[in-house]
Computed example of a mutant assay.
Amino acid sequence: MKIGMRKPNIKKSISARTTGKAKRVVKKTVIPGYGKKGTGWIKDPKKAAYNKVYKKTTFSIFDWFK
């Protein structure tokens, strides 16, 4: 488990910003649980627990500017 600052990834950052709103809307209409809060705990509780701890123990350089 990582503790401390996360290394920024430019490719992933650009990919996240360019994934269109239309794609999310289509997924939301096709998949009933898509985008709902808390569905990660139902789908994969082990990964959800890991992600929660990871988010609390690491920070991004961009968090300093918020």
Rank of each mutant, 00 (worst) to 15 (best):
M1S: 10
M1A: 11
M1K: 04
M1F: 11
M1I: 08
G4K: 06
G4E: 14
M5Y: 11
M5T: 05
R6A: 05
R6N: 09
R6D: 13
K7E: 13
P8G: 07
P8E: 06
N9F: 03
N9Q: 12
I10F: 10
I10D: 15
K12Q: 08
K12C: 00
S13H: 00
S13C: 01
I14Q: 04
S15H: 03
S15R: 01
A16W: 04
A16T: 15
R17V: 10
R17S: 15
T18L: 08
T19E: 15
T19I: 07
G20D: 10
G20F: 02
G20P: 08
G20T: 09
K21F: 09
K23S: 14
K23T: 14
K23Y: 13
R24F: 12
R24P: 14
V26M: 03
V26H: 09
V26K: 01
K27N: 13
K27M: 08
K27A: 05
K27Q: 08
K27W: 07
K28N: 14
K28S: 15
K28P: 15
T29R: 07
T29E: 13
T29M: 07
T29D: 15
V30Q: 11
V30T: 12
V30C: 13
I31H: 14
P32H: 06
P32Y: 02
G33M: 03
Y34T: 09
G35C: 06
G35I: 06
K36R: 04
K36N: 12
K37Y: 05
K37F: 04
G38V: 00
T39M: 10
T39Y: 13
T39L: 00
T39W: 00
G40K: 01
G40P: 09
W41M: 02
W41R: 10
W41P: 11
W41V: 07
I42Y: 10
I42L: 06
K43T: 11
K43P: 15
P45G: 00
P45N: 00
K46T: 08
K46P: 09
K47V: 05
A48E: 04
A49L: 00
A49R: 01
A49C: 00
N51W: 07
K52R: 02
K52V: 05
K52D: 12
K52Y: 10
K52F: 11
K52H: 13
V53R: 00
Y54F: 03
Y54G: 02
Y54T: 03
K55D: 14
K56F: 08
K56I: 01
K56S: 05
K56G: 13
T58S: 04
T58D: 11
F59Q: 07
S60Y: 09
I61R: 07
F62E: 12
F62R: 01
F62M: 03
F62N: 06
D63E: 13
D63S: 03
D63C: 03
W64T: 03
W64E: 12
W64C: 10
W64Y: 13
F65G: 04
F65I: 02
K66C: 01
